[in-house]
Design a protein around this nucleic acid. Sequence first.
DNA 1: ACCCGTTGGTGGTCGGACCACTCTGGCACG
DNA 2: CGTGCCAGAGTGGTCCGACCACCAACGGGT
Lengths: 246, 246
Amino acid sequence: MTDLDARRTPVTQRAVEEIKRRISDGRFGPGDRLPTERDLAADLGVSRSSMREAIRALITLGVLESRHGAGVYVTALRPSDLLETFSVLAEVSQGATLLEVLQVRRMLEPAATALAAARADDAQLAHIGTLLEDIDGGDGTVSADLGFHQAIVAATGNATLAAVNDGLSSASFHTRVWAGHRQAGLTAKLREDHHRIHEALLARDPDAARAAATAHVLRVEDWLRTELRGQAAPGVESAVRADRER
Amino acid sequence: MTDLDARRTPVTQRAVEEIKRRISDGRFGPGDRLPTERDLAADLGVSRSSMREAIRALITLGVLESRHGAGVYVTALRPSDLLETFSVLAEVSQGATLLEVLQVRRMLEPAATALAAARADDAQLAHIGTLLEDIDGGDGTVSADLGFHQAIVAATGNATLAAVNDGLSSASFHTRVWAGHRQAGLTAKLREDHHRIHEALLARDPDAARAAATAHVLRVEDWLRTELRGQAAPGVESAVRADRER
DNA sequence: ACCCGTTGGTGGTCGGACCACTCTGGCACG
DNA sequence: CGTGCCAGAGTGGTCCGACCACCAACGGGT
């Protein structure tokens, strides 16, 4: 069957599929070094140019990594390696899509926080507490807030969950929310939420953690909704929008 | 700073960044056609080979799409376009990571199904019903099962949610589960789950939908857990593992 | 006015060449 | 004998020029 299918399928794509297949069936394992581009190209019967494009695609996906002069290697295939790709979504998104992103986080974060309350060990809880203090006292509130939530999700021990959630929480989005919160005077409310979440974690109370996380995401979602309704053009980046004629 | 950085940065990566920049600042808008590969290469001062690798990377990310003989276009940048990237995770993953993926789906699918029960219109419900019949009657149970769940998530109207969930539901994983289910004789149970979900949707009962979806995912998760416990090495591909010396 | 073949332009593939980098082995020096 | 260096081979990175496959628009024929 492959013969007929291959007829009208781009060579590069075939090469990508073939390499993925060899990874998933174990011929290429995590950390292994692949044959040279030249050998691989000869093996699959394609030119090195096409093989390089295939490898480039898999590098972009986070499946492979190449070291100049040393070789091409299969990554550890940890979910966190495949995170960066997805974060592009949250970065590029604006307006209505951001609401969608928040809706997904409203499904994930409560469950994740509840899971963290049940699973987190003392060291992780202590680390989360430290991050909480950074938010209250420090100036780098944006990255601190981001780190706080990421640490909670990481405490679930589910790397896939952490990767997905991180992808949905881009730094640029947090920056925008924090800027809006500050000028809306909601910082106090946010701090309250964070402490409620932290207390629930310390008490190892999944239900309370879930409730607190839900309330937190909901608050951000409500704020974004009113901001989007109020002004069609967001406040942070508004002047960079005069390109619609060509 | 870019000048000094550029010195030791791979040409291809620089090209990727430059194109992304031109998209985000509006010089290339969604749906627009890019200049020729040859022109673009000359413009950025790189060879066409390198430019093609850069374009290939952005195609992989879902930002660009190319039509043979017509040109390269910027996608609509809708979340669903950036979906395929993530599905690689579910495809390549094995063992413990698959459990993590299912855990995430256990958080998403119940909430998504509940949302669908509240939001789906008659046409969507009818479509879902059709897909359900395909599962019961047809032979292509795998793709039918996949389509059933995707249609439900799509009925929530949240494209981002659909993209994330689809990414977590790779065809290869479903194939594996279905093969296991069939030999374990759990097909009847699965069918029961599907009908319960469908009824809840028809009744516009979010709570019932949530419960049914939870039970469904939980059943798959339990099956996978026992299979993984039973045999350390998965059953599908096991004999292809004799490459450790070189 | 409509249909269809021609033709130019575009992405897709190829092969080869050269450069930049890494690694390793052996040589010279201490 | 031990240590350091350096030269070579091997690998990915980049470039070039050519040709093929495909699409779309233009044009002549009916």
